[in-house]
């Protein structure tokens, strides 16, 4: 068991845990947009910056990819932390002025209208979609493309990723809701990636419930599940 303090309160952590997770588990409020406990921490959004003192050195660092270490002191609300966080929020708001979660953060931290030219991209490049697709789903249908100010997320050739199974995990983890999933009677479309897939009808109730690709893929990667399991919708299973 590792012991350290957050804002003066002693907390306990398991080996391998990160500071952000421990803080969240103990009820500390640290804003974060690119972190998800099921995924590898990435440290891209920079919102979860805190001040950490280790030995005689104190520095500003992201808490999501900082390991819980014995004896460190974490400060989540110092003047420096707030100043850094506010600028990150202003930069994100300027990039994505229409995203509710960012607008809420701006309000919470009293960040007014950004002093920069406003963009209109709802994607903040947190990389959650890319990580869930690679780490959890395992199909790597999308990835980051480009570099620097030209960076974006998308499929190879930027449209219709051939390995995408249409599971919608990317849309589920997206913090800004910029990946939309549309369904009609027979098809599911992941709008942002330009991927449309036919859906399977439930053997029992006849309702289209998931893309064929997704069910085939799940059938392949899971073991010990009866083959007709994937023929029925979750409600009829």
């Amino acid at each position: 068991m590792i012991k350290f303090t957050i804002d003066g309160v002693e907390v306990e952590a398991e080996e391998g845990q990160n500071v952000l997770q421990v803080a969240l588990d103990n009820g500390f409020d640290i804003p974060h947009l690119c972190y998800h406990e099921a995924l590898e921490p990435y440290g891209a959004c920079r919102l979860c910056q805190v001040e950490i003192t280790k030995g005689n050195r104190t520095r500003l660092t992201t808490s999501c990819n900082y390991p819980a270490l014995e004896g460190i002191q974490v400060q989540t609300g110092t003047e420096k932390v707030i100043k850094a966080r506010k600028m990150v929020i202003e930069l994100l708001l300027a990039r994505s002025p229409n995203v509710p979660v960012i607008k809420d953060l701006a309000e919470e931290y009293s960040v007014g209208t950004p002093r920069f030219t406003l963009g209109d991209d709802d994607c903040i490049l947190c990389g959650l979609c890319e990580r869930v697709c690679r780490e959890i789903v395992g199909v790597e249908a999308i990835s980051f493309l480009g570099r620097g100010s030209d960076r974006k997320v998308g499929p190879p050739l930027e449209i219709n990723p051939q390995t995408c199974i249409g599971c919608g995990a990317c849309a589920y983890v997206c913090p800004t809701d910029c990946i939309k999933v549309e369904e009609n009677e027979n098809e599911r479309t992941i709008v942002r990636w330009g991927r449309t897939l036919p859906m399977k009808k439930c053997k029992v109730c006849g309702r289209s419930f998931a893309p064929w690709f997704q069910l085939d893929y799940f059938g392949k990667i899971t073991e010990g599940i009866p083959s007709d399991f994937w023929d029925k919708c979750p409600d009829c299973r």
């Binding site: 990835s143 493309l145 190879p156 390995t163």
Partner: peptide, 12 residues
Amino acid sequence: IPLTRIYRIATF
């Protein structure tokens, strides 16, 4: 190698 990885590298 997944095609996405190739494109990621080729555009980076």
